[in-house]
Write a protein that binds this DNA or RNA. Structure first.
Length: 478
RNA sequence: GGCGAGUUGGCGGAGUGGUGACGCAGCGGAUUGCAAAUCCGUGUACAGGAGUUCGAUUCUCCUACUCGCCUCCA
């Protein structure tokens, strides 16, 4: 069995994944979105990173032996603020945003996690956890709030390498009169009648930011599980607080054994922000780029290194994806299939198992997709398409500015369109035979326009889609 | 101020104690009506300094610079 090695933030070292909580089974929790707005590119990075890991885990341990939990935080002050701004009900905002998120992440080729719990469905579990923390002397109620007592947990700050005293010295903490220590954080806060709230021993209120993840991971994965992931900006305070809550509420468990953090995404060398005008949502980009191109860019540097999203990288990704797509067209033309027994390339598996070295996996893809190997064409095409799919690329089934339509619908539409494309290639051949190059070029230009490459071969003209293929435009040729 | 990450050829980006991936771009060639695609060929890179070593881009220290977190954030 492939040994998977992962960098553990907790120990600052790469270590083997040893699924021993439940032997042979892996539990993974990744912090999901707070649903109040469209997912941006930065939100997409961890989704893709942990999707690659999820795919690897499913391959190594078997799909039924991997539980991947990614939550939706649907109670939060940002959501309340959004409701106030727009005058819309909170439920409508969270439901809509949740669906947007699922659509956008699917476009990026991300598999749905095994479990996608919503925070509001776990309020009783949160209350129970808070009660346990109070009972064990790790939390206290004050003025309708319940706060976690950071001084009661000696290891507080260990994950992020900070000490409580240092952080207080940093002095950028909110000092509320009801806090025993400035670093204490809120587990529960009171809600006025106009705010979302649930009954609790401390009055009507709502959970603080961090408890939901502790409560949901405990409910779905238990007191110990293998992997916890998220962006490295969550390391402090979010993950630190999760650890404190979970370890104090369930001291008999380990909570997460391996902590993984992806580095931040930047845009053209700067932090993505609305004020800099370099802020992009996945939804925005989907009108210009295929999900595969976005996925490729997001996978093109190691997850623990910063990723700079730039125009030139997008262009480079298009070149690569076009090549893969052309090979995929040949694969389809040859009526090939990926056999059930298909095994991903050993070099790709080894690269991914080595702390998700996706760039090294791409190197192998480059070897498979370039160079002269005409004598092994069918085999090679199966390798290319099989491995690309393993890495989460849809190769055309989701390509084009409208990747959202279902595969089944797409197949029928594509068949009629493909016939037309072949017909146009025949027209080019006829024109060239009569040396009517102007006509041949004009037909070629029309094909290019919809994102189809025209290949001049000894056996006549052929078409292959490139990454700019636009299904809707191609339909107009029929 | 505290904590952390990083600095590899024009660009992107792996990796290694012993002449140094891979991709994009460029250049040359094949092919082509011209292209595109494809194929073949082509690269004086490891921030600076000191040290360890037979030998360092790879280990150690220092300097410079960049970036992130410490506040909502993936």
């Amino acid at each position: 069995m492939t040994e998977i090695r992962l960098y553990n933030t907790k120990t600052r070292a790469v270590e083997p994944l040893e699924p021993t909580v439940v032997p042979g089974r892996v539990g993974m929790y990744v912090c999901g979105p707070t649903v109040y707005d469209r997912a941006h590119l930065g939100n997409a990075r961890p989704v893709v990173v942990f999707d690659v890991l999820f795919r690897l885990l499913r391959h190594v341990y078997g799909a039924d032996n991997v539980t991947y939990v990614r939550n939706f935080t649907d109670v939060d002050d940002k959501i309340i603020a959004r409701a106030a701004e727009t005058g819309r009900p909170i439920d409508a905002i969270t439901a809509e945003t949740t669906q947007w998120y699922l659509d956008d992440m699917a476009a990026l080729g991300a598999l749905e996690p095994t479990e996608m719990p919503r925070a509001t469905a776990y309020i009783p579990q949160m209350v129970a956890m808070i009660e346990a923390l109070i009972a064990k002397g790790h939390a206290y109620a004050a003025e309708g709030h319940v706060l976690f007592d950071v001084r009661s947990y000696a290891e507080y700050g260990r994950l992020s390498g900070r000490s409580v005293d240092d952080m207080i010295a940093g002095a950028r903490v909110e000092v509320a009169p009801y806090k025993r220590d400035p670093m204490d954080f809120v587990l529960w806060k009171p809600s006025t009648d106009d705010l979302p709230g649930w009954p609790s021993p401390w009055g009507r209120g709502r959970p603080g930011w961090h408890v939901e993840c502790s409560a949901m991971s405990y409910a779905l994965l238990g007191k110990s599980f293998d992997i916890h992931g998220g962006g490295n900006d969550l390391m402090f305070p979010h993950h630190e607080n999760e650890i404190a809550q979970s370890r104090c509420a369930h001291p008999e468990g380990d909570f997460a054994r391996i902590w993984m953090h992806n580095e931040m995404l930047q845009v053209e060398g700067k932090k993505m922000s609305k004020s800099l005008g370099n802020f992009f949502t996945v939804h925005d980009l989907r009108s210009q780029l295929s999900g595969d191109v976005m996925r490729y860019v997001l996978m093109s540097s190691h997850y623990r290194a910063p990723l700079d999203w730039t125009v030139s990288r997008v262009e480079e990704a298009k070149v690569i994806l076009s090549r893969w797509l052309r090979l995929n067209d040949r694969f389809r033309r040859a009526s090939l299939d990926i056999p059930d027994s298909f095994e991903p390339d050993p070099a790709i598996l080894a690269a991914l198992a080595d702390d998700l070295n996706v760039p090294a996996a791409f190197t192998r893809m480059h070897e498979l997709t370039t160079g002269n190997s005409a004598d092994t064409e069918p085999e090679r095409l199966v390798q290319v398409v099989g491995n690309a799919r393993f890495l989460g690329f849809s190769l055309g089934s989701g390509t084009g500015p409208d990747p959202s339509c279902s595969l089944e619908v797409a197949v029928d539409r594509v068949d009629a369109m493909e016939e037309r494309l072949s017909q146009m290639c025949a027209e080019i051949d006829a024109a060239r035979a009569e040396k009517d190059f102007a006509l041949a070029d004009s037909i070629r230009a029309r094909l290019r326009e919809v994102g189809v490459d025209v290949l001049t071969t000894k056996d006549g003209t052929r078409w292959e889609r490139n990454v700019d293929f636009d299904r809707d435009k191609a339909e107009t040729l029929v």
